[in-house]
Design a protein around this nucleic acid. Sequence first.
DNA 1: CAGTGGTCTAGACCACTGA
DNA 2: CAGTGGTCTAGACCACTGA
Lengths: 231, 231
Amino acid sequence: MAPYQRVKQYLKSGLEHGRWKPGSLMPSESDLVAQFGVSRMTVSRALRELQNEGLVERVQGVGTFAAQLHKLSATLSIRDMREHVESRGLRYRMDMQLLREEAAPPLVAQRFGIQPGAPVFHSLAVHFEDGVPLQCEDRWVHPAAAPHYLSNDFSASTPTQYLLEVAPTWEASYTIEAAMPSRQEARLLKIDASEPCLVITRSTVSRGIAVTLVRLVHPGSRYLLEGRFSP
Amino acid sequence: MAPYQRVKQYLKSGLEHGRWKPGSLMPSESDLVAQFGVSRMTVSRALRELQNEGLVERVQGVGTFAAQLHKLSATLSIRDMREHVESRGLRYRMDMQLLREEAAPPLVAQRFGIQPGAPVFHSLAVHFEDGVPLQCEDRWVHPAAAPHYLSNDFSASTPTQYLLEVAPTWEASYTIEAAMPSRQEARLLKIDASEPCLVITRSTVSRGIAVTLVRLVHPGSRYLLEGRFSP
DNA sequence: CAGTGGTCTAGACCACTGA
DNA sequence: CAGTGGTCTAGACCACTGA
């Protein structure tokens, strides 16, 4: 194991075993240099990585402290539906229900920074896994970000794949909630109108402008999100 | 701006503007050393950070490549309910409905690596925001991980806070789904039995042993998760 | 073989903190 | 003032890749 990893591992396992309580002072860089017989750059890297992982907090002129652990955040991967299905060896299909230009509704116009009623692209697709509907994707697209959205061949790529190609995602925010499907969504997903759904609403920014707003509706009985954190 | 940040910013904005397409070869460390007139350690740090952020992929002996952007993962913070409520300046309350030792059900026994029927701790609490029930917390605790769980004063700390104190979380996995509440949960949350709920199931490991399993049920109309990613 | 990334060293200068 | 972290340099040795 590389020296910086040895130092990092030593500190990590010490934190794990409660050798340093949250908020307490940890060894300084020069302490660790002496203890491990390595150069300061090496312990510095170990400490910086622990800081990036949220395990320690460092204050210039003061020292390094064991972090409060409940500030942890977890990773949740958001993948393209096609990849999600095919990566598990299942058959993927998408039905494009609607693909056209429309007048921007007020909410969409606001997020895109354009006038209400200005032309925007609107698509509605259903994603299937082995013939079972798994996701209903209701999407608005800013024409300036993807001018040829309407003429793309969506039998070859999903809206997510196409948009990632023409406008790489540089920031996105989303919400996850439980809600009832609309009547139309229930029909498209072939579920009862009273079945709870997992609804993800996502807004994506590329090169400073909003690219797309999307509402992803999943039948609660067929889809769940998984995640983990490991500090 | 520090030199390593200048290099990093240069590469980041180049990626953002499509100067290097996903999968294509990017400048080598020595290219960047020459271009910026800095030492190799400095460009190495810039590239390593971009790698950690998932923006580039590096292969020893080959080079650095622009990453495929759709492998992004997002951060989703999982916070203690009390902090969540109080951080927004609202009044927090918890009702502990049940707190006792029980015989481990098969599923719990399996996750804890103990015999079914062995003693485990079980608690059921409701968390309120300004008097409105926001979360129902059904929790199983491994007695070896928190032997004094049952005698803790839960008017002073939440189960999450207490467990983080006595057994720092070192790994957790969770699922997020939409589901109907149980009859009991609907009653405790004061919602209709047909209201969809956001259900988080979390399993936590500390020092190699399972500490706790918890089912968190939130009324869909009152609670949503927010997240963002920015590569 | 030349070129790549992975890592380390021994020193340096700096900004910042708190006694 | 001594001690802390933040960062950089100029060199080094290494493992790995592909021609």
